[in-house]
Amino acid sequence: MTKSELIERIVDRQGQLSVRDVELAIKTMLDHMAQALAEGERIEIRGFGSFSLHYRSPRVGRNPKTGESVELEGKYVPHFKPGKELRESVNDSIDD
């Protein structure tokens, strides 16, 4: 499912808002989530899961083209942990 398919499905299900409204709502929600993470704040969605930042230590990497060493700084990467309900319903679907 892509973002535009998600928009369609929400429009069909919701029945009151226009495609434009739903599109804007999804953009607002995703921006809000990205902004929270960028500020180091966790996201906790009950039943769905949580998003947080994981730290990656500085390391020496290599330029794959030249083989030259490059020092990479430590950085944060987004991490998602599925909630119990999502984890269980997805796992139960394996038998379908």
Binding site: K3, R13, Q14, A25, L30, G47, F80
Partner: peptide, 25 residues
């Protein structure tokens, strides 16, 4: 809207369908 947003993502995943939200992940 917020409920339906997460619910639709969950339903897609439960139907073994990948969810692609460009820009986000």
């Amino acid at each position: 809207m917020v409920e339906i947003f997460f619910e639709e993502i969950r339903e897609s995943l439960v139907h073994n369908e990948q969810v692609k939200l460009s820009g986000f992940g």
